[in-house]
Design a protein around this nucleic acid. Sequence first.
DNA 1: AATTACTTCTACGCCACGTAGAAGTTGCTC
DNA 2: GAGCAACTTCTACGTGGCGTAGAAGTAATT
Lengths: 128, 128
Amino acid sequence: MASLGELERAVMDLLWAGQEAATANTLRDLLAQSTQPQDGSAGHVGKDLAVTTVLTVLSRLERKGLVERERGTRPHRYQAVSSRADHTAELMHEVLGSAPDREAVLARFIGSVTDNEAETLRKLLGRS
Amino acid sequence: MASLGELERAVMDLLWAGQEAATANTLRDLLAQSTQPQDGSAGHVGKDLAVTTVLTVLSRLERKGLVERERGTRPHRYQAVSSRADHTAELMHEVLGSAPDREAVLARFIGSVTDNEAETLRKLLGRS
DNA sequence: AATTACTTCTACGCCACGTAGAAGTTGCTC
DNA sequence: GAGCAACTTCTACGTGGCGTAGAAGTAATT
């Protein structure tokens, strides 16, 4: 219940970026442009997808519990269930949770964190 | 480059558990028993696999860089490249790394950590 | 009622993974 | 050193997730 496909991730990124709920069409358009805004002159690289494709992906994301849709409005509006930060943190816990040696894992994790982040963590934890 | 299948994970668990390199046959036997050591009387649940199956999985794990094999010895001996803790910590970094808002993620992560673990983290981080 | 906009259903190709037989290779034994 | 036994590699099939989208169904608009 963790990994996302490439397109699924792209859609989630858009949903996480915009604060408001979006329609499939909107997302389709955003996908058509994003990914490579700056472009010499050749073809743009943003995927030019069929709307149904986006809808399929959104359905799958809904099934996975990552996305929520308003069914009332005619063009259904989709939005992420939780923020990217929340979701990522959840993922980290998922990864950590599967380990019987949590402390050891945390030790290794901390060991390879940047100084800045270590500082952030200290602040977040407060001193005992 | 992250997720493992069920069998792949079972094999890694065995390799991580035992400190020494193991052969495909050994692993096959361990897989046949483990998973449900305690058993009323009915059939055991440990997978009874063909050795080739184990070998295939080991090859795939090798390709993924999780396992290393001694090709010299006749029954090749396999072992995990890094400890489970290292691997898990690495995974956590992978998950975290893909986020543009690392600090926010860390905040959420810390927010939902158990008290014990928070304490552990404080110790690990030491004073500034 | 017909047209249009939107959603759901169905589907196909690809790739990872569980699974394992067939074929090839190496080493031991007599 | 010929043959058997053990081991590895090759090939393959079924299943399921994902990218992709057309066909079919449903609702809103005029």
